[in-house]
Amino acid sequence: MAIFVFADQHQGTFKKAALETLFYASQLASSRQQEVVAVVMGEINQPRALADLGKYGARRVLHVDAAWLNDFDARLYALVLKEMLNQYAADRCLMPHDFNGRALAPYLAAQWQAGLLTGIVSLPDDKDCYQKQVFSGKATAWIKLQTERQVLTLLPNTFTPQPGDSQAQVERWQPTQVSAQQKRIQLKEVQTTQGRVPLTEASIIVSGGRGLKGPENWGMIEQLAEVLGAATACSRPVADAGWRPHHEHVGQTGLTVRPNLYIAIGISGAIQHLAGVNGSKYIVVINKDPEAPFFQAADYGIVGDAFEVVPRLIEAIKKYKGIS
């Protein structure tokens, strides 16, 4: 029996979270002597990228090479996956808990009559329980799936792949029960935020709050992000005031992020903001108010005026990185 992983790609580049999930699946598979099968939807212009999935733990790649699957569609992808999983008599399908995975996994679970567990952050323990963050990261639950067939989603940035040098065996696979005629959603336009690391994939995030006083002061935030190769984010009041675009809003009602390093500048740390960032591995808080609640959630902190601390921090990082 194999573990199937939906390996989401965009123009031949596999998403970071998809590679993490493959790696996770290979960990899961090795303890059960199973193999990992990566499922790739849509045309690929760099065929070598498929075999390279072997580096992340895929033994085989099943490539559904069809132009009508180039654009993500939860329903179509689920129908194709269902047919494939049934054909291979699979019992387990994994994908990242990212934008597409969060749509596809439940759709597939319903169609394939499988148990569903989303946003897991661990391998199963000896009771076969997976850990999952609940209450927006304020607690963890140990959950067991009671079903034979299982669909699982893995929270991004939980497992760090250690690429090997294996190559996967690539096969083309065509569905017979699903076709382009079943497409009912038409993609009209894709707008991408140019040049920046997507927030959900960033390993370092520099985030600014109301303490920065106005959008004109974001230059130093951008500069700090640039020297660190980081993405920029903001708190809710900043997005609501229109200082920064909504897609940068991190927190309970915005994006949930789990970077390795989250640097919060001029953000007090309201519980709703913390809910979006408390999965970060390390948190640095820069705030002039020593009573700011964010310090209690921080690993490192500087109590000081951001307008003085941040430029000095930028210089210190440049020095460390040898940039002048």
Partner: peptide, 26 residues
């Protein structure tokens, strides 16, 4: 239900913030 919840736990408390003096960003 297809799942059963074995138990819940609160995250381990952070050991406390390590404060660095302003001016000592290095």
């Amino acid at each position: 239900p297809a799942i059963s919840i074995d138990h819940f736990a609160l995250p381990p408390k952070k050991s406390g913030v390590h404060l660095i003096e302003p001016g000592n960003e290095e």
